[in-house]
Design a protein around this nucleic acid. Sequence first.
DNA 1: TTTGTCCATGTGAACGTGAACATCGATCGG
DNA 2: CCGATCGATGTTCACGTTCACATGGACAAA
Lengths: 344, 344
Amino acid sequence: MSPEPQKGRAPSIRDVARLAGVSHQTVSRVLNGHESIRDETRQRVREAMEALKYRPNRAARALVTSRSRTIGVLSATHGEYGPSSSIAAIEDAARDQGYYVNTANLASSSPGAIIEALKHLLLQDIEGLIVMAPQVRVFDVLAGMAIDVPYVSLQSTGHGDHRALAIDQIAGARAATQHLIDLGHEEIVHVAGPQDWIEAEARMRGFLDAVIDADLRTHPPILGDWSADFGYFAGKELLRYRDFTAVFAGNDLMAVGLMHAFRDAGVDVPGEISVVGFDDIPLAQHVWPPLTTVHQEFGEVGRRAVALLLGEVRGTPVDGDEEIVPSLVTRASSGPAHAVVGRY
Amino acid sequence: MSPEPQKGRAPSIRDVARLAGVSHQTVSRVLNGHESIRDETRQRVREAMEALKYRPNRAARALVTSRSRTIGVLSATHGEYGPSSSIAAIEDAARDQGYYVNTANLASSSPGAIIEALKHLLLQDIEGLIVMAPQVRVFDVLAGMAIDVPYVSLQSTGHGDHRALAIDQIAGARAATQHLIDLGHEEIVHVAGPQDWIEAEARMRGFLDAVIDADLRTHPPILGDWSADFGYFAGKELLRYRDFTAVFAGNDLMAVGLMHAFRDAGVDVPGEISVVGFDDIPLAQHVWPPLTTVHQEFGEVGRRAVALLLGEVRGTPVDGDEEIVPSLVTRASSGPAHAVVGRY
DNA sequence: TTTGTCCATGTGAACGTGAACATCGATCGG
DNA sequence: CCGATCGATGTTCACGTTCACATGGACAAA
């Protein structure tokens, strides 16, 4: 229960005006930092606001300006480090600019759920939208709904008319794979993220690019769901063939799951199999063995997304072409290749 | 860039009324599901709305009803699993009830930052507030700001006039500690969370209760910051004395850091030292050794918080006394006690 | 028939704010 | 010294919705 000291209704701009002995418009001007107000008047108005504990009514303001000062974020996180960090950064950055953030979280990736969440956000009068749920389907839905606000996504789908944050996931994945190749690995397996995630697709592409360039045998990637549990499961499956010396996982969670499976089977990492992940979650350096992975600046991603979006919203587009390039962090989970001991 | 097919301004309730050949009030009634509307009329209005792609203006509605259908969440997460999961659940639950969620994230725990974030949220006309940043300071600030909306926190501070979600962290910590005691450990160290976190305090209390009840020596708890890095650091420090056989960490991240330090020093877990964490993050079962920890239903926490808050908002309080009791999950990181080999 | 009640709908006002325009005095250039 | 300009402030209106109340017709009870 909370206190309810409310007597009548909240004080309005007119109450302040009356107390300060000015017109309501003058109060409005003070509120909005208008210039031609005498210092003395401004002072008087401020005191009146203070005395009445006046708080501007956002609804009234939004009604008359048709600007809600709110942006929407469509996300799909179940507590994962990456998206959560980016969202936190988005909130900070938006607040910094006086904007509010409304988040809608995707519980499932069914088209119905996506549409429902999106409708929810759009019913709210948001000025712009950040799409942190880079699933292909989301963009299809987005395209079909004729969104009438600017929106920014994490990665361009190629089609669609919006700004995309340029994070070079392909380069990151490529660097990770190249690292393994440089270590002498010739049989590398990729455990990818869900097929319909744009990020998963980009990482897979980077992997394939590197493998093809090096003229290595192409193992068919395994499609996972980003979870450590899946990594564990995939690791067990992979060991049945054992026709590889390294695994590049689409994210750190799956990488840890893989290492768990290898450990269970008595297979040494990196002695027998090298493992590389993607994301550089805080635990990456504390697991055993410390995980070689691709570091991403999630906070930076969030901040850039906000800058890009608010640029569009204000009609002064910001240059967002400067790519964010993730960097490889080499740790103990990757090492020189050994002979393949599998059946192949 | 986004398309801008907007000609004039968005269609209003009156435009719909004109097209349907009724009064604006009839449209409003259809919108709000009022009863006494002829089916045929309702149908005609619906078609007109469809034809004009009419979307109700939230600001206008909020202005006249003085209900924003928005709740605020004050959080303090940097991507950690627990809070992020709860927030995701809050969003789902709120959306389910037609509510929007505005989140403000605490970048630092300085009083200034707290006040700033809180002011931001309260300037927005939220109907209620969920405090997911259970730091003592936050409540002090809250108390000092004379909040005029209902709010719900994760844990009662004892003082303050609000609803608190009853999660029995004390019981969880107690169970974890008792588990170690049952295994024969007599020298148990607690690596706690930041002193000003209510959760950290509760977990420490649970630990101390169990230790005192068992009449064991009380090691002074080490105050950490929830991070794996700190756990690693603390582990190194602890090994200098080695006057314990088990560690109970305030959360899983620190527990993993501790195990990392022990591993580096060649100390076997659980052979020489047992480790228990708190939270049951998804990686807990995949690290080496799999971590014994206390499982928390973060999603449930979020859902309950929303139910509790909306109950207050609607003036029909929900019974929230039913405690959420975390459960111990026993894995390989804890085992029977061995003799203390340290100096003590 | 008359009166009252209920249903379906309409009319007018109000919510709190900012934009556009109006006003009034002071200052300035010629 | 007079019109022009500018600074400081006031007046009126519109934003899109819901609320309180009004209207008119159908139907039942008297």
